[in-house]
Design a protein around this nucleic acid. Structure first.
Length: 457
RNA sequence: GGCGCCAUCGUCUAUCGGUUAGGACAGCAGCUUUUCAAGCUGCGAAGCGGGGUUCGACUCCCCGUGGCGCUGCCA
């Protein structure tokens, strides 16, 4: 009783463990938008709590890992402004440490060589799936004398245990799993070639990671990780499982749903917009403030308040965020992004563009558009009337230039101004939808305007 | 099959037992207008089902249903 009391006191008095979080992507593909979101929450949590944000490249699968993917992941994180605080860690450079830990378990009798063939294991799995057996491999080879050859190294788990492994998730609360359900957990192919679960746990322990903030798809793996950490003598970190990013059909966002790589979104959208959208998609800031800066987010972010439900990634809303951020940009910033050639029409562009793709709308400023004659016709008027009207507009411009063009055209079109402005719009832009024709004319200049009108007639 | 997570407008969500269930995106309508966009104004739109607990449940509990995840010598 007294001991319990003192422990409680010590716990209260002890200096809290330093906050250390990590993003642990595998370089087996381009930076996934979901990984980017995960990175954002890790980063925000670290920044909010004065912690350390670490990036660890999980390249234990040598066959699938590629340098180009690692480069893309790192570049993507930088692009979002997610700077890491320590040098990049790579699991491929830490094999010595894994080897030591595997041997420790092997020598301590906690782990052993399982020499069943993949075929045997597969057959067992199928049988379990078909029958009512629990899906777990309880390996008989544990009884054998230690042999360092063939098969896979497993951590022994008591299949008769009545113990519950409790995952105390920051977002979801306490979740219980039965220890006996796991069977003997595979941890390495050989002493020098360890598996994901093992490397992951060794690293988190060795790197003194305080909070593992990762996707919900890892929730069911977590008791396994706790078991491995226990065997290794590591105090398990706190866990927080983030909701998944979903496609419109509510399944996990994957390539078949279209773009899932951050790099594809960066082409279209501003990093600030992507950051903002991803951040508030699964976390609601106080007072429902959706448009929020990264600095403000750093202050108000609370891991406990991250949502539990998977969220559909809605490009429409991202577009809206992007439009909002474009409106806020300075002239110089905007020009820098879209190119100096848009300088003269910057106001129009800013007002109308939501993503970079919308720039195509303005092509006609730089090259003479193709005109579909049918399009020249205004509502119930005829094509001939449109052409006549265009000729009159041309006369006005030839005579007086573009001075006071608007009031002259208003006068000309008194009664049905559309008959004047519509054909002019089409003649100048080749489009049904465009900025104001007079504004266009002023930018194009007298000569070009006349040329285009003649072409249309 | 086993284990686990989740469940409010089309979408993202607010509500920490008592609200006309609020906001944002999208949609629609109106205003403005030569078109489109923007802008402004307005409208429609939700508590998965069944049991409890309670004076009172969107909210707490149980069951069901549905969605998703895990169940690898992938990560």
């Amino acid at each position: 009783m007294l001991a319990v009391f003192f422990c409680a006191i010590i716990k209260l008095v002890t200096i809290p463990v330093p906050i250390r979080v990590r993003l642990a992507p595998s370089p087996t593909g381009f930076l996934h938008i979901g990984t980017a979101q995960s990175a954002i929450y890790n980063w925000l949590f670290a920044r909010k709590n004065g912690g350390t944000f670490i990036v660890r490249i999980e390249d234990t699968d040598r066959a699938r890992s590629e340098k180009q993917y690692e480069d893309d992941i790192l570049a993507g994180l930088k692009g979002l402004g997610l700077e890491w605080d320590e040098n990049i860690y790579r699991q491929s450079e830490r094999t010595k440490m894994y080897e030591e830990q595997v041997n420790k378990l092997l020598d301590g009798g906690k782990a052993f060589w399982c020499r069943h063939t993949p075929e045997e294991l597969e057959a067992e799995r199928q049988a379990q799936l078909a029958g009512k057996d629990l899906p777990r491999h309880i390996c008989v080879h544990r009884e054998d004398p230690l042999q360092r050859d063939g098969g896979v190294i497993r951590l022994h788990i008591d299949s008769n245990s009545t113990r519950k492994i409790i995952v105390d998730d920051v977002i979801r609360g306490k979740i219980e799993f039965e220890e006996r359900l796991f069977g003997d957990i595979s941890i390495a192919r050989t002493e020098t070639n360890v598996l994901f679960h093992f490397a992951n746990v060794v690293d988190d322990g060795e790197m003194r990671i305080s909070h593992v903030i990762r996707g919900e798809d890892h929730l069911a793996n977590t008791p396994k990780h706790i078991l491995i950490a226990e065997a290794l003598g590591f105090e398990p970190p706190r866990y927080a499982h983030l909701p998944l990013l979903l496609a419109p059909d509510r399944t996990k966002l994957s390539k078949r749903h279209g773009a899932t790589a951050l790099k594809d979104y960066v082409k279209e959208f501003l990093p600030e917009a992507i950051f903002n959208y991803l951040a508030v998609l699964s976390f609601t800031p106080p007072a429902d403030k959706e448009k929020i800066s990264r600095e403000e987010l750093m202050e108000v972010f609370e891991l406990e308040k991250v949502h539990k439900t998977g969220a559909i990634f809605d490009v429409k809303k991202l577009e809206w965020f992007n439009g909002e951020y474009i409106k806020k940009m300075s002239d110089d910033e905007l020009l820098m992004m879209i190119g100096q050639k848009y300088e003269k029409i910057l106001t129009m562009v800013r007002e109308r563009m939501k993503t970079k793709k919308d720039l195509e709308e303005f092509d006609f400023f730089f090259e003479t558009p193709m005109i579909d004659p049918e399009m020249l016709t205004w509502k119930k008027s005829t094509l001939e009337e449109s052409r006549t009207m265009l000729a009159r507009v041309k006369n006005i411009i030839e005579k007086d230039g573009l001075e006071n063009l608007r009031s002259k055209l208003d006068e000309l079109g008194a009664g049905d101004r559309g008959l004047v402005y519509w054909p002019l719009r089409v003649a100048l832009s080749g489009k049904k939808a465009s900025p104001d024709p007079v504004d266009i004319a002023i930018i194009l200049g007298k000569e070009e305007v006349i040329k285009r009108i003649e072409k249309a007639i």
